[in-house]
């Protein structure tokens, strides 16, 4: 398998959840339930006292008590839907990919946001603490709070952020949006 293809496969694994944790949690719960039921079955088969309730009593409790049956059904349905959603959804991690000649770079969205905040702050002439950036799969939202008494040119900041986004070349492509707060603050 060639190097680029291996890089692409590895990058995809880095950008998506393996669902191993979800499966492990589900299987540990299944194993615990199985351990309890198995123990009760063995105790009943050898005629010993049950831990909590004999299997026949457990079945009777679940079958005869209608409110309890519906409660159990609701819990099982919710857990089943959660498991199915986890199985069928993509499970993307907050990361973007940058293809380069020698390496595939995976950039955490937190790092991207921090870099865009810096570009916006430098362009706006405000401390970095006055810029908030959030990065999602296709969007970066930058909010700049100006220093009191100093106007911030929204278009210049937008241009600086767009340039920073282009310079990184992240995939999926990110569109940036810059918002400047109407009221400024006095930097601490």
């Amino acid at each position: 398998m060639n190097t680029r293809r291996m890089r692409r496969i590895a990058a995809r694994r880095e950008r998506h959840s393996s669902r191993s944790t979800a499966v492990s949690v589900a299987l540990v719960l299944v194993a615990l339930g199985g351990a309890y039921l198995g123990t009760e079955c063995v105790l009943a088969a050898v005629g010993a006292q049950p831990l909590l309730a004999a299997p026949a009593d457990l079945v009777r409790l679940a079958v005869e008590d209608e409110p309890r049956r519906l409660g159990i059904a609701a819990v099982l349905a919710v857990l089943g839907i959660i498991a199915l959603v986890l199985a069928l959804t993509l499970g993307g991690r907050p990361r973007h990919r940058v293809e380069r000649e020698s390496v595939t770079v995976i950039v955490d969205d937190e790092v991207l946001a921090s870099g865009l905040s810096r570009a916006a702050a430098d362009s706006a002439g405000v401390p970095r603490q006055q810029v908030r950036t959030s990065v999602s799969r296709n969007r970066a939202a930058v909010r700049v709070t100006p220093v009191s008494g100093r106007a911030v040119a929204q278009s210049a900041v937008a241009q600086a952020v767009a340039s920073a986004v282009t310079a990184v070349g992240a995939r999926p492509v990110i569109r940036s949006r810059v918002q400047v707060a109407e009221e400024g603050v006095i930097p601490r």
């Binding site: 299987l27 299944v30 059904a73 609701a74 099982l76 089943g80 199915l84 069928l88």
Partner: peptide, 19 residues
Amino acid sequence: NRVLLALIGLGLLVGAVLA
């Protein structure tokens, strides 16, 4: 992993229907 999660989910839903 996903096949297993789907099977567990379907099993739970069948259990819910039985209950």
